[in-house]
């Protein structure tokens, strides 16, 4: 860094941006890395079944497998539209 650089306004450093992006990504990959490979397929099929009855879009559903020491929980979260039945 030269004397001239010193007087330039310092933007948010790119290193802190890198760190922030990495922390989010690594946390996500650690939690999803252990999930069974059938999960995306399961989500797709479940969504297809639900869509036969309710008009939900694919972003309205999240699926998550939590693992604790002695228990696995499959969490399914579907946001239903107000009153738009098929």
């Amino acid at each position: 860094m030269s004397l001239l650089d010193y007087f330039r306004t310092s933007k948010t450093s790119s290193a802190s941006l890198a760190k922030e992006r990495l922390q989010i990504l690594v946390a996500y990959e650690r939690s999803s890395g252990n999930q069974p490979s059938y999960l995306p397929e399961l989500q797709k099929e479940l969504l297809a079944v639900i869509q036969r009855y309710v008009n939900v879009n694919k972003d309205a559903m999240t699926i998550n497998l939590e693992q604790t020491d002695n228990r696995e929980t499959l969490e399914l979260n579907i946001v239903l539209p107000d009153a738009h039945r098929l």
Partner: peptide
């Protein structure tokens, strides 16, 4: 270390934290 100091490079502590 020079680039770490000027905020262009992840520091040892950053990498260790992750």
């Amino acid at each position: 270390p020079e680039r770490v100091k000027s905020g262009e490079m992840l520091s040892l502590n950053d990498v260790q934290e992750i």
